[in-house]
Amino acid sequence: MSAAMLETRDLCKNFGALEVSREVNFRLERGARHALIGPNGAGKTTFINLLTGALLPSRGNILLEGEDVTSLAQARRVKRGIARTFQINQLFRGLTVLENVCIAVAERMGVGGSMLRAAGRHADVIAEAMRLIEMVKLQEDAGRRVVELPYGRQRLVEIAIALGLNPRVLLLDEPAAGIPSAESHILLDAIATLPKEIAVLIIEHDMDLVFRFAERITVLVSGAIFAEGTPAEIADNAEVRSVYLGTALDG
């Protein structure tokens, strides 16, 4: 078996006596569209935090293209191509959309520490940021401060920032959370048009979105993998239906 884009081996995380990740063996293939679902408190966000390096695992390994990155700091993993969005927006609220994306692009291009040239004069950074902003269709809002945007559009800024890091692996933590249903199509479009070569792992409660988007689904319960398979297999799995999906798919 060739190396997965991202892989975990026996990944465990304890907070004291509480086991929030239990021997998770997970593979995210190249260019995957993979969803991670599970009831509240199943440890989905913790799993993302372990992958990005925001948390260190108690045991186990994380491999990026077969290379062990378990002990790499968060910033180094970002440089290797692991980017994420947050369940609750984590943006530079007082800055404009363009500035938000520019900060990420500047870091990726290695000019984030440049002291002499004005940020507004890094033409390559700005051009790239504008390209991403157009990709999520926010060009009309590029000059507005994030705090002035409706929440749904702020979610798109999250995605643009993550894309600004030119990721190989993109981890989307409940991208549709908090978006009014009238606006959710913008987000769906943005996710549908993500570049094919990026491996995407999405955590989401919105089953419509999950089944429309995912080619593979992993179900996490109490920190352990409960089931994994194609959307059809998961939908047909009686145990999964009883613990999680409930009646959501009956109609």
Binding site: T52, A54, Q74, A75, R76, R77, V78, K79, A83, R84, F86, Q90, L91, F92, R93, G94, L95, E99, C102, I103, A104, A106, E107, R108, V111, G112, G113, S114, M115, L116, R117, A118, A119, G120, H122, V125, I161, G164, L165
Partner: peptide, 29 residues
């Protein structure tokens, strides 16, 4: 003035505005 308007200055503002995000974009905070 040069410093605060540079990319370095922008990243400082980023640190002030959202530390979590600044770590997540891979900045050496």
């Amino acid at each position: 003035r040069t410093l605060v308007y540079s990319s370095f200055g922008q990243s400082l503002t980023g640190i002030r505005e959202n530390l979590l995000r600044m770590h997540a974009v891979g900045a050496p905070v």
